[in-house]
Amino acid sequence: MAIQEVNPMVTPHGSKEASYLLPLNKEDWEGQGIPDFVYGQEELLAREIQWPRHASGMLGALPPSRFDSAICSAWRQRMELGLFRYHLGELQTQILPGAVGFVAQLNVERGVQRRRPQSIQSVRQPFDPGQFNFNKIQPGEILFRLHRKPNPASALQQEDILVMINVSPLEWGHVLLVPEPAQALPQCLLPGVLRAGVEAVLLSLHPGFRVGFNSLGGLASVNHLHLHGYYLAHRLPVEGAPSKPLDPSGHLHLLQALPAPGFLYHTSGPGPDLEALVNRVCRATDYLTEHDIAHNLFVTRGAPPGKSSPSSVLTGVRVILWARKSSFGIKENQAFNVALCELAGHLPVKTSQDFTSLTEAAALTLIQDCLLPPAQAEEVQVALVALVTQEEQ
């Protein structure tokens, strides 16, 4: 019995989009083709998003958007069909006592079952077709193609993105956003891909849907261009952390709160403001890549820069960029490895013993050990401010 289509969309031409669900018969997957999720600027939800009084479960009491429904129904089906490396149930979660508000989760299976990271020696390492890459996945791992309706006013290149499951999920709805895999792009951020990531956050009605990027040396485990996206039903420190402006126009801020100082960019929503942000961020990541400096990036709904937001209301999207020491390979003896979600305050912990004993002080030590030494951090800050200042002149 085939699974019925969920939330079909009628396109302007009057035809329905394909279902995001697979036939139950595996032999039919190959001929199914990749369905399109077509969206326009009107679906980018720039209005205030608010955390419910009691955020729990995957979507809690929040009404899902069309994007949320598409991801969650297809992702749940792939879990039921056994396409993941392990079954992900509700993860044991705790908020670590202390000023930061770390969200720690016990995810033993991810620590044990995830694919071994590739051998990486440089942030600028070329793509290697002999290593694992996203041309080698099962067809059923792809949920849909994210396709933006053409926008003549946009100067950015249109980029179709494949949304596929992360077979070793760190949380519910953990997906990868991958530009056409056949392009064989190394793990270096590009403007069209970043815009798709920011717009994915704006397509969601859930304040806990986040998107991120790990560079090579920043714990990216696959050297094939991709972003991560996932749901986490908990607030994170970076959503409302205070910041100070670094340039006269306020386009670049520095987060001043723990767990780690980062460069903060903000957009109020779709349009020229979002495109300007994408260009600013990618100029910064280009600089870091050219200088072989590892980095992590996190995209979340959050307060405007320069303002602390203790309330549950989130206005616009924050993009936080961290420059950090290069780290090649997983450190098995640590409670967690520091990448995009850990720098934002979400700690997937690998063992029950570490989960029980982990303290805020220990977590901060692990994170701060991965940051650049002060002199190099200051050098990077001066360079990124110069990039923004050049743009303004």
Rank of each mutant, 00 (worst) to 15 (best):
L225P: 13
L225M: 13
H226K: 08
H228L: 06
L232D: 12
A233I: 05
H234K: 13
H234Q: 13
R235L: 09
R235V: 04
R235N: 05
L236F: 00
L236D: 05
P237T: 06
P237D: 01
V238R: 02
G240L: 01
A241H: 08
S243I: 06
S243P: 13
K244P: 00
K244I: 14
K244S: 09
P245G: 00
P245S: 08
L246F: 07
D247P: 00
D247M: 03
S249K: 03
H251T: 13
L252V: 05
H253Y: 13
L254D: 06
L255T: 10
Q256L: 14
A257N: 05
A257H: 10
A257I: 01
L258K: 14
P259K: 11
A260K: 06
P261D: 08
G262P: 06
F263T: 11
F263V: 06
L264G: 12
S268K: 11
G269I: 03
G269A: 02
G269E: 02
P270F: 00
P270M: 01
L274Q: 00
L274Y: 04
E275G: 05
E275F: 01
A276E: 11
A276L: 11
V278T: 09
V278N: 02
V278G: 04
N279Y: 00
N279P: 00
N279A: 15
N279T: 15
R280A: 14
V281I: 12
C282N: 13
R283A: 14
R283K: 14
A284H: 15
T285N: 10
T289P: 09
T289Q: 15
